[in-house]
Design a protein around this nucleic acid. Structure first.
Length: 491
RNA sequence: GGUCUCGUAGUAUAACGGUUAGUACAACGGGUUUUCAUCCCGUCAACGCGGGUUCGACUCCCGCCGAGAUCACCA
C-alpha cells in the first residue's frame, strides 16, 4: 500500500484567509488519519504577486491551528526544496522530457500575435483555443526545439484533444470532451513554470497521493490529466473543495470581500480549537448530530466521502458560538490555568500589573459570558479600576427608577453597615448575607441586587453578585458603596 | 458564448424510494433570586420549478429556472 502523502501548497501572496484554509485542514486530516505525510510547499513562481513575509504568515497560521507539517519550510525533508523557485531545474528537466517525446514545443510566437488570435476568436464567438493557432515550431524536431530553449520563449504542451473521464472524490464521476484540451504553457518566458505544470511535477516527485484544492481548478482537470498521461504518471486522488461563500451575495469568499485572515480571528480572541472546529464542519459532517469536534475527534470522524459538494456560506456568528462553547469546554475539561494561559494580551490595560491569581479569579467567574477572549477587555474593567460613578445608571434603571432617592440611600446604608461586619468574604457566605439583606430590605431581588451590582461596577452586566463582590474583596466593595452613597446624598 | 459544477428553513446541515422532513446557529417567547451570559423549555421556518419512472420521489431520469466556476506567460 502506497504511503499517503498530502500537501498544502499556497502562494505567498498574502495571508491565509478563511476561504482557503480548508484546503490545508482536509489534507492534514487525511495525512494524519493514514499515518502519512503532510507537506507544506510554497508555490512562489509568480514573482509579480510575491509578497514579502507571506510565507511566515502562512506558517504562523498553520501552527496556530495546530496543522503541523512533516516536510516543508523550517522542517526540511527528503523531497525538498519546498519553494518552487528553488526547484527550477526540475521543471526544465521534465519539460525537456516532453519536448524529447514530441509533446512540447518552444513557442516563439510574439505575444501581440497571441492577443490578436484571442481577440479574433472572441469576436467570432468561437472558443479561444491556442492549439487552433499552433505555430510551426510545434512540428519541429526535438533537437530544433532544444536549440530554441534558453532564448526567453515559453514552452507549451502539445496536446492531443480527446475525451477524459475521471473521478473526483468530492464531486463524483466527471467527463469532458476534446473541446477543453489545449496547448497550455508549461514554462513561462521567465524560465519559471506555470502552476499547471509545476504542481504536477512537484506532486509526482514528492509522492503526493491526494490533491485537495478549490473547485476553480476543476475545469483545468483535462489538461492536467493530459500531462499525467504524457509524463507517464499515475493520477493521484482529486478532491475539489467547494467554495466558501461571502456573507452577502453568492460569490466565493475572497480578500476583496473583506475576508479576514485566519489570524485576525486569533487576535480577536477566537481559540484555534473553535476555528478548526468551525472550518472543518463548514461543508463536512459525519452524519451524526455532534457539533463540537476537537482535532482528535476530527481525526476519528473525518471522511472524504462526506465532504459537501455545494458551497457553504461563511457565518461569523457561528464561529463566535463555537468559540463560546470552546471557552467553556476548556474551562471544564482542562481547568482555569489552561484557559487563563490563553488570555494573555486580552485583558484591559488597567489589569497590566495585577497578580495572576486575581485575574484568574476574575476569569473563573466571567468565562461563561465570553464570546471571544477580547471581551475581557470590555467586560472586566471594573475589577481593576474603580468605575466612574454615573448616577443615571441607577436612577434610570428599569427596576430602580420607581424607588425614591431616600429609599436608595437607606438601602445603601443598610448594605454598607451589614457588609462592614462581615469577615468571611467567601462566595457562599456573601450569598447568605445578601439573601438576608434582601429579606430585610423588603424589596424585590431585581431591585436590591441591581442597586448593589450597579454601585460596585457601573457596567451593563456582571457575573452573579455574590461572586463579583467576593472577587472584588471587602475593601474595594465598601469603598465603592460609600462613594455611591455619598454621591446619592449630594444629588 | 463554450465547458463544468451546485440547488433542503435566514445560515450550516441530516434523512436504505415509505419520517408529523431531524439537528445546530440565528430570530422570537418563557423558565432559573438582579443585569449580561450560561443552562433548560417552547415557537417560527425548508425539499427551486415542471414533467416522467413508481403503489409511493427530497431521494432515480429528463427538461427548465436560478446561482457559481473556468476559458492567462495567476494560482
Amino acid at each position: 500500500m502506497k504511503k499517503t502523502v498530502t500537501r498544502f501548497a499556497p502562494s505567498p501572496t498574502g495571508y491565509i484567509h478563511i476561504g482557503n484554509v480548508r484546503s490545508a485542514i482536509y489534507p492534514y486530516l487525511i495525512a494524519r488519519q493514514n499515518d502519512g505525510t503532510f507537506i507544506l510547499r510554497i508555490e512562489d513562481t509568480d514573482q509579480a504577486r510575491y509578497v514579502e513575509g507571506a510565507t511566515e504568515l502562512i506558517e504562523d497560521t498553520l501552527k496556530w491551528l495546530g496543522l503541523e507539517w512533516d516536510e516543508g519550510p523550517e522542517v526540511g525533508g527528503e523531497n525538498g526544496p519546498y519553494f518552487q523557485t528553488e526547484r527550477k531545474s526540475h521543471y526544465i528537466e521534465w519539460a525537456a522530457r516532453l519536448i524529447k517525446a514530441g509533446r512540447a514545443y518552444v513557442d516563439d510566437t510574439p505575444s501581440e500575435k497571441i492577443d490578436e488570435y484571442r481577440k479574433a476568436d472572441n469576436g467570432a464567438k468561437i472558443p479561444y483555443l491556442y492549439r487552433n493557432h499552433r505555430p510551426a515550431n510545434a512540428n519541429k524536431t526535438p533537437e530544433e526545439n532544444f536549440a530554441l530553449m534558453g532564448e526567453g520563449h515559453p514552452i507549451r504542451f502539445k496536446t492531443i484533444p480527446k475525451d477524459y473521464e475521471w473521478h473526483d472524490e468530492v464531486m463524483g464521476d466527471m467527463k469532458t470532451g476534446p473541446e477543453v484540451c489545449d496547448d497550455i504553457i508549461l514554462i513561462k518566458k521567465d524560465g519559471l513554470p506555470t502552476y499547471n505544470f509545476a504542481h504536477i511535477v512537484d506532486d509526482a516527485e514528492m509522492g503526493v497521493t491526494h490533491i485537495a484544492r478549490g473547485v476553480e481548478y476543476l475545469s483545468s482537470m483535462p489538461n492536467y490529466l493530459a500531462l499525467y498521461e504524457a509524463l507517464g504518471l499515475d493520477r493521484p486522488y482529486f478532491l475539489s473543495l467547494p467554495h466558501i461563500l461571502a456573507p452577502q451575495g453568492n460569490k466565493k469568499l475572497g480578500k476583496r470581500d473583506g475576508a479576514k485572515s485566519v489570524t485576525e480571528y486569533r487576535d480577536d480572541g477566537v481559540l484555534p480549537e473553535a476555528m478548526l472546529n468551525y472550518l472543518a464542519c463548514l461543508g463536512w459532517n459525519d452524519g451524526t448530530e455532534q457539533e463540537i469536534y476537537s482535532k482528535t475527534d476530527l481525526l476519528k470522524a473525518f471522511s472524504i466521502d462526506r465532504i459537501q459538494n455545494s458551497g457553504a456560506r461563511f457565518d461569523e456568528v457561528k464561529i463566535f458560538w463555537y468559540n463560546g462553547q470552546w471557552i467553556r469546554k476548556i474551562f471544564t475539561e482542562q481547568g482555569i490555568d489552561e484557559l487563563y494561559s490563553r488570555t494573555e494580551g486580552f485583558w484591559p490595560e488597567a489589569a497590566a500589573n495585577e497578580p495572576d491569581d486575581y485575574k484568574k479569579k476574575v476569569l473563573s467567574i466571567i468565562y461563561d459570558r465570553l464570546k471571544t477572549l477580547s471581551d475581557l477587555r470590555t467586560m472586566t474593567e471594573y475589577f481593576f479600576v474603580d468605575p466612574k460613578i454615573d448616577l443615571s445608571q441607577i436612577t434610570e434603571n428599569k427596576f430602580l427608577k420607581k424607588l425614591s432617592e431616600s429609599e436608595l440611600i437607606d438601602l445603601m446604608t443598610m448594605t454598607i453597615e451589614r457588609l462592614n461586619d462581615v469577615d468571611d468574604w467567601s462566595e457562599e457566605n456573601l450569598q447568605n448575607e445578601l439573601n438576608e439583606l434582601l429579606a430585610k430590605s423588603g424589596k424585590k431581588p431585581a431591585e436590591f441586587f441591581s442597586l448593589v451590582r450597579i454601585a460596585v461596577s457601573f457596567a451593563p452586566f456582571s457575573p452573579a453578585l455574590h461572586q463579583t463582590l467576593s472577587v472584588l474583596g471587602k475593601d474595594k466593595v465598601l469603598y465603592r458603596l460609600n462613594l455611591v452613597r455619598t454621591a446619592l446624598n449630594n444629588a
